[in-house]
Design a protein around this nucleic acid. Structure first.
Length: 601
DNA sequence: GCCGTTTTCGGCCCGACTGTTTTCAGTCG
């Protein structure tokens, strides 16, 4: 595990332990925030911490001298004394109990202190023998909810890949559009922000008939449990359904879906609020206060009232008219900020922007440079794939089937690749309106060499070099391997550079700063693989690439016709890394792109 | 623990829902 991931995990655990020991809540928050920033930052913390550079670390916003000192301690001694001290106070197993939905620090602390609950198994014990009912504020209904939450956690507690969450959201949106009285319906939350994995699906609806929406939502097919059913908010757990088979083995997979009912005139304020992130929302509300205003899900209010008792009532209930609420754009404008796209709302520096950043959009993509056909493990012919790419308005499609070492993927032996190149060239003469390029997704072997000899590589228009095996290698070895591929003069793109699979396989952890520096030096583009199981590079890597000024290539890695629809997830990942169109080679016009590809021949 | 266009001290976002409460605490996002 990388130093930063490890440090981030430690701070997260410390934050929970502080909460359980009744520490000052602002201190708890500061630790949680530090955990998030350590995970997200593009600053390489390990060398700074090893050198004891307190000043440089504390210069990162949200990281102060206290946290910086602990990071240095971690790098130099291997642990943090505050963490060790907390471990003697709080059994580590108590933290897993905090993961049960509906149980917060107060309740978990009570269970731990009064009933000796130090694990989920202990919790099950006091549920089974009924002694949980001896705790204050604990009744039959709460007990049932806890049992359901444990079952949820054990069956499918993990986060959903965005591709699956999107299917769930689309299903509910289609259903709610049919409900009587619906004016508008949309998904919000982390799904709208394009995160690579989604904890729960948020749906927003404006309707003249809330009762109908509530009924439709809580009684539709697949609903396993209704968690809340209130005036403005409903929560359910639903089976994932058809999508589960595509996802993998877990047919019992479930996900929580929240429905928020809002008034149409406040749509923008509600959408902004429920899109989050929580941290971005906090920053916005702080900014509003500093400007003498109040921001909530009903709007942005000029709130000069200083009466303390008035302050206790939200402005909308005091008859104050919002100065902005209809659209997100209006609210950002009133806050004197540029519009921040949903994908950038993570409190990763966007609050400091004075000018808008025009991040890449789906429509900017004009070429697909990584696709498979029936020649290897794809399910499309060259012609089928070309027709789809053409229909999407692409000017170029590169056919890049697997190389010989990927035996399970039907990788092509050299003589078959030669025949395949001929087929692609022949198809290119036959098919109008799109340029077909002959390429290959060439394995980067464990030692960093490529899977075909240079003569054969030279015959290809596009070389996507990707790691497929040996994905458990140590960071140093992984860095060396990828660097060797980047330095190869005939490589255009490094495909899914880390080989991670979301929620399934961590993949490689190379030194991204070294990788990016080499990519710049050797004019190699790093891929954002758009498949929702991969999204590799991930958002924070893209941000580092963008800051350093390297090139990105966003590709579908299509095997099935439907895989072209995954492109949006790659684009959203790019946006999350603040990627602009000009840094992405797939947005270039044909002349520029083909010229760049030929420069490596 | 962090931070500063009043501040190195004294603040630190806002509202909804549930369950067990007879007026509200705990949790969530």
């Amino acid at each position: 595990m990388s130093f930063q991931k490890h440090a981030s995990d430690l701070f997260h655990t410390m934050s929970q332990m502080l909460e359980l020991t009744g520490s000052d809540r602002f201190r708890v928050n500061a630790h949680a925030k530090a955990s998030r920033i350590i995970k997200d930052t593009t600053v390489d913390l390990e060398p700074l911490a090893r050198d004891g550079d307190l000043k440089a670390i504390a210069a990162i916003e949200g990281i102060g001298k206290g946290t910086a000192a602990k990071l240095i301690e971690l790098a130099q001694t291997g642990t943090i004394s505050e963490y060790e001290a907390l471990c003697t106070k709080v059994p580590i197993g108590v933290m897993e109990v905090l993961g049960v939905q509906g149980l917060g620090p107060k309740t978990v602390k009570l269970m731990w202190e009064q009933k000796g609950v130090e694990s989920i198994d202990d919790l099950k014990r006091i549920l089974d023998d009924g002694s949980i009912l001896e705790l204050p504020r604990m009744g039959e209904k709460t007990v049932e909810n806890i049992k359901a939450s444990i079952a949820f956690l054990e069956s499918s507690g993990r986060r959903l890949p965005i591709g699956i969450a999107q299917q769930v959201a689309d299903r509910f949106i289609t259903m709610l559009k049919e409900a009587p009285g619906t004016i508008r319906v949309a998904f919000a939350g982390s799904l709208r922000r394009g995160k690579d994995s989604i904890g729960d699906v948020d749906i927003l609806i404006a309707t003249t008939d809330p009762d109908a929406a509530r009924e439709a939502f809580t009684t539709c097919d697949g609903v396993m449990q209704v968690l809340a059913k209130g005036e403005t908010k409903c929560s359910i757990r639903t089976a994932i359904g058809d999508s589960a088979s595509r996802w993998g083995k877990d047919k019992n997979a479930a996900v929580q879906v929240d429905l928020r009912m809002v008034d149409e005139p406040n749509w923008g304020a509600a959408l902004l609020y429920f899109t989050g992130s929580k941290e971005h929302g906090v920053r916005l509300r702080e900014r509003a206060i500093s400007m003498g205003m109040t921001l909530n899900e009903y709007g942005l209010f000029k709130d000069a009232s200083s009466e303390a008792d008035f302050k206790k009532m939200p402005p909308q209930t005091r008859g104050i008219e919002p100065i902005a609420c209809a659209s997100e754009e209006a609210i950002y404008l009133a806050l004197e900020m540029p519009f921040i796209p949903p994908t950038m709302r993570e409190d990763r520096g966007e609050m400091k922007l004075t000018e808008p950043i025009h991040v890449i959009e789906l429509e900017d993509i004009k070429a697909e440079l990584h696709s498979h056909t029936m020649a290897s493990d794809g399910k499309m012919t060259i012609e089928e794939s070309a027709a789809i790419a053409k229909a999407r308005g692409f000017h170029t499609l590169a056919i890049t089937d697997h190389s010989q070492s990927s035996a399970v993927a039907g990788g092509l032996k050299p003589h078959r690749l030669c025949e395949h190149i001929k087929s692609i060239r022949e198809a290119n003469t036959r098919i109008d309106g799109i340029t077909l390029l002959a390429g290959s997704e060439v394995d980067i072997l464990v030692d960093g060499t490529l899977d075909y000899d240079d003569d054969l590589l030279h015959a290809l228009d596009v070389v996507v070099a990707s790691p497929h095996a040996g994905l458990r290698a140590k960071p140093k070895q992984a860095t060396k391997r990828l660097l060797k591929a980047i330095e190869h003069p005939m490589v255009h793109i490094i495909g899914h550079p880390t080989g991670r699979l979301i929620e399934q396989r961590e993949g490689l952890s190379p030194d991204m700063n070294e990788i990016i520096a080499a990519a710049i030096e050797h004019h190699v583009a790093l891929e954002i693989n758009s498949h929702w199981m991969r999204l590799d590079l991930r958002d924070t890597h893209v941000r580092a690439v963008v800051e350093a000024g390297a090139l990105i290539s966003i590709n579908c890695d299509g095997h099935h016709p439907g895989d072209y629809d995954n492109l949006i997830f790659g684009v959203l990942t790019g946006q999350r890394g603040w990627l602009t169109a000009e840094r992405c080679i797939n947005t270039w016009d044909a002349k520029k792109l083909h010229g760049w590809l030929k420069s490596k021949r």
